[in-house]
Structure formats: structure tokens, C-alpha cells
């Protein structure tokens, strides 16, 4: 049993809860124990940084310090934005003495401290590079044969602090999806193109256009489903189809978390994996793996 500290982030408790619902059982099935940080707070993400970058780092550092209290375990952050901000804070700690000083002072009043050395990992990295594809393959009960998936990585797990994959053409998820039986859209050219991020919620046109381009191209390349690694990407690609249709054309294709696809391949129940929470249902599911298999 491998043990990781776990930072879910706000989205996984809200609009992105299907991510957590699928992540936890998949990790459990692979003998990975996740220990949720006690009283974790918002990572200090994107929108926060626009107001006060140093305070954003303070928010992140509180989480890192809480993680350090659990010992020098790796910290798993499934949301790309959290992954980025936590890593960015680490980066600033090492790079900027003045930021480091502020963080130390702030942590002191909370009786916390952070040495700067807790590795922050994305579950995709852990699954493929630590657990390994062989171990995953062993757990596959229903290979997702015939399911054509467009792997969509989004921005923030590869840029700019990519440590586990190529910044321009990441392939970690491609390999993972192939391991669970999926057919992967080869060299999906938009795999790291921005989904629109928080813009979709604020200035619909530019944000929606970003999502529309990705959805359209995935359909054009014959994908049945888009796999994501980030709750915001999932929300943007899944939640706005009505508006996209009203503006341009219908590009209805389901967008799911990669962990949901893994869960399906592991024979888990669709509902338990939160697949009912998507706006565009992943249906019809090929008969071979639509059946829940008792585990």
C-alpha cells in the first residue's frame, strides 16, 4: 500500500465531484491510500493570483505546510490549477528570497512551517510513472475496446512546470488510455490548447470559442469521448453545449475524467464513478463494458 497526502481542491467538492468520485475508488483498487489534508484551504488559484499573487502563495503554502505535517509524503493534487499553484509557490520559495520570507512569517503565526521540499504530483503522473502501466493493466476487467478517446491535457499540468511529460506533446495519458483498451486519437493537435479557463464563465464568447474549437476537432477526428485531467476543463467542455450550439453549431461529445474511464475499465459502476453527472452522457456505452461487474 502506497500512501499519498491528498489535496482535493474546491472544485472536486463542487462542480467537479465526479472527479473525486472516480479518483478515490480507482486509487483504492490500485492499493494507493489517499489521506486528505486536514482543514485544507483554497489553493490560491488563477483568479486569486490576479488580485494578490503573494497572498495566493500564502494560501498555497498553508496547504503545503499542512502536508508537511503528515511527513515527507508526496502530495497529490488532481486539479490542474491547484497542481500549478502549489508548484508555482514552491518555485517562488526557491527563487525569490523575499516571497520566501513573507511565507515563513505568515506560516509562523499559524504555528506552521514549510521546508519547500514536498513533491506535488498529479494523479496522472503517479498512475503512469509510479504505479506503472503494467499494474494498471492487471486491474483491467473490461478493456474499453472500440472506444475512441481524444486525450485532452489542457494547459496547467504541462505548462509551465511540467516535470513528468513533454510540454508540447504530452503522451502520458495517451499511454494510460491505451493500457485500458481505448483507441486514442493519435497526435490530437489540440491536446494542450486552452479550454478557455475561467473566461468561459466571465466573457462567454472568447471562452466558448476555445472550447468549441477543441470539441469540433475531437469530433472531426472521430472521437467518441474526450478525456480530461482537470475539473475546469471538464466543466468548460461539458457544460456549455447549449450556448455553443446557439452560437456556432452542435458539437455534442461527452467529456469525462480519465479516472472515470479507468473505473469503467476496472469494472466499476457507472453511477459510482459519477458518470451521471455529465451534461452530455457517455452513451451509448459499448455493451461490453456497460455492465457493472461485481468487484
Amino acid at each position: 500500500m502506497v500512501k499519498y497526502s491528498y489535496f482535493p481542491g474546491c472544485s472536486l467538492k463542487g462542480t467537479g465531484r465526479a472527479y473525486e468520485e472516480s479518483l478515490l475508488p480507482v486509487m483504492k483498487a490500485l492499493d494507493i491510500e489517499l489521506e486528505e489534508l486536514d482543514d485544507w484551504n483554497c489553493c490560491g488559484a488563477t483568479a486569486y493570483m490576479a488580485v494578490d499573487e503573494v497572498k495566493a502563495c500564502v494560501m498555497a503554502s498553508r496547504n503545503l505546510a499542512i502536508a508537511e505535517k503528515l511527513g515527507h509524503r508526496e502530495l497529490m493534487a488532481p486539479c490542474s490549477a491547484c497542481y500549478l499553484v502549489l508548484n508555482k509557490t514552491k518555485h517562488y520559495i526557491h527563487e525569490s528570497p523575499s516571497v520566501h520570507h513573507v511565507l515563513d512569517e505568515a506560516l509562523k503565526v499559524a504555528n506552521l512551517s514549510y521546508s519547500g521540499n514536498i513533491p506535488v504530483k498529479h494523479p496522472l503522473d503517479v498512475l503512469v510513472n509510479t504505479i506503472g502501466l503494467d499494474a494498471i493493466k492487471k486491474r483491467v476487467k473490461n478493456p474499453l475496446k472500440g472506444l475512441k478517446v481524444a486525450p485532452y491535457y489542457g494547459c496547467q499540468i504541462v505548462r509551465p512546470y511540467s516535470t513528468f511529460d513533454d510540454q508540447y506533446n504530452p503522451t502520458t495519458m495517451d499511454r494510460l488510455l491505451e493500457a485500458i483498451g481505448c483507441t486514442v486519437v493519435k497526435d490530437f493537435p489540440l491536446k494542450t490548447r486552452c479550454c478557455g479557463g475561467s473566461l468561459t464563465g466571465t466573457l462567454p464568447e472568447p471562452g466558448l470559442l476555445c472550447s468549441y474549437i477543441i470539441l469540433k476537432e475531437a469530433l472531426k477526428r472521430g472521437a467518441d469521448v474526450i478525456a480530461t485531467v482537470c475539473p475546469l476543463c471538464q466543466f468548460n467542455l461539458d457544460g456549455y453545449h447549449d450556448k455553443i450550439e446557439a452560437k456556432w453549431e452542435s458539437v455534442r461529445i461527452p467529456t469525462v475524467y480519465f479516472t472515470q474511464l479507468m473505473g469503467l475499465a476496472f469494472g466499476m459502476n457507472e453511477r459510482e464513478l459519477g458518470l451521471h453527472r455529465g451534461f452530455i452522457p457517455m452513451k451509448p456505452l459499448p455493451a461490453a463494458f456497460a455492465q457493472p461487474v461485481a468487484t
Binding site: 462542480t15 483554497c42 488559484a45 483568479a47 488580485v51 497572498k55
Partner: peptide, 18 residues
């Protein structure tokens, strides 16, 4: 949005997206 996000994270420690 940025300011509201900041305020909410600041006051509550977490963000409730809706």
C-alpha cells in the same frame, strides 16, 4: 470575478463555484 474569488477564498478559506 477575480475580486469576488479573492474575497470568498479570503473569508471562507475555500471557494464555492456556483
Amino acid at each position: 470575478l477575480a475580486k469576488e474569488f479573492h474575497k470568498m477564498a479570503h473569508n471562507h478559506g475555500r471557494v464555492t463555484e456556483n
